[in-house]
């Protein structure tokens, strides 16, 4: 009973990256350049084999016998290179018992400290006041669903599972949601770092589903966690968590590390670059 579903999932997972590699991994604007050399299936043939192996392990019949929700990511790292303009990772999954269900994914980025300031009117001018520090707020938080949220599960249940963006605000403000926490979610939503994409998950017969997890260019680097929740008839069935990294690679990584670890050298480099370019330009353009 289980085996055909597993086979199907594995085949699908393998077939999609092969037939459309740009779709699974790369930025929408410039697929070839965004692709990180170290982690793309196309550039290192053994990676795809590895993914296939993991698919088989993840979809092990012994594990899935208990009615587990199994998922698979098309990649484990998003490389942020010089031309990074956002990227996407495909998440494949199989629901237990090969039956249909409603899936909600809460994709959460790294938790970074932030300050929020409220503008006040002082002598007719709108001036930002004292900052309030927000700790434990994810810098990225998007919810993806297979059906509109209202049809999936009661709001209270979704909030408890942290599958609603305003649950972040609730978490920040303690028992009563503060004005600042709500504003935080509002600003993040305007920056497209927070939000809900309803009906973004594609479900197929046999309890299979697929979704593209989009990481915009302004998303911070760090560990991203996708919590996958399954609902049936408004009831919570099970959930599973999978994660991937968004990391600076190559040149970008070297620079960030140099700036952090050898800051004096980096500073001298910046000044040297500025002065030499300025001097070179002056010398070059002296002759009209």
């Amino acid at each position: 009973m289980k085996r055909p579903a597993i086979l199907l999932l594995t085949l699908w997972a393998i077939a999609i990256p092969i037939s459309a590699p740009a779709q699974t991994l790369s930025a929408p604007t410039n697929p070839a350049e965004v692709s990180p050399p170290s982690s793309l299936p196309g550039s290192r043939p053994d990676v795809r084999t590895q993914i296939r192996d993991e698919a088989l392990i993840a979809a092990d019949p012994d594990i899935n016998e208990a009615g587990e929700l199994s998922t698979l990511l098309s990649d484990e790292i998003i490389a942020v290179g010089a031309t990074f303009a956002g990227a996407k990772i495909a998440l494949f999954g199989a629901l237990p018992d090969r039956k249909r269900g409603d899936v909600v994914i809460a994709l959460k980025g790294p938790e970074l400290p932030a300050r929020i300031l409220k503008r006040r009117r002082i002598l007719g001018l709108w001036i930002a006041g004292e900052p309030r520090i927000l700790l434990g707020a994810p810098a990225f938080y998007r919810v993806l669903t297979s059906k509109p949220l209202v049809e999936t599960a009661p709001a209270g249940l979704l909030r408890r599972l942290e599958a609603l963006p305003d649950s972040v605000a609730a978490g920040l403000g303690g028992p009563d949601v503060s004005e600042e926490a709500r504003a935080f979610v509002r600003i993040k939503t305007a920056e497209k770092l927070y939000g809900v994409e309803e009906s973004a998950i594609e479900t197929r017969a046999g309890g299979l589903f697929k979704v593209d997890l989009r990481i915009p260019a302004n998303a911070p680097v760090g560990l991203y966690e996708a919590k996958v929740h399954l609902f049936r008839d408004g009831r919570f069935i099970s959930s599973t968590t999978t994660s991937f990294h968004v990391a600076k690679t190559g040149f970008e990584r070297e620079i960030a590390q140099l700036a952090q670890n050898s800051s004096l050298l980096y500073g001298l480099l910046c000044v040297g670059l500025a002065l030499s370019w300025g001097a070179a330009a002056a010398a070059l353009l002296r002759r009209p």
């Binding site: 932030a114 300050r115 300031l117 503008r119 900052p131 600042e180 509002r186 600003i187």
Partner: peptide, 11 residues
């Protein structure tokens, strides 16, 4: 301002 709050990174 349309948004009364300003968000800044770091603690």
């Amino acid at each position: 301002p349309r948004e009364l709050f300003v968000l800044a990174p770091g603690a």
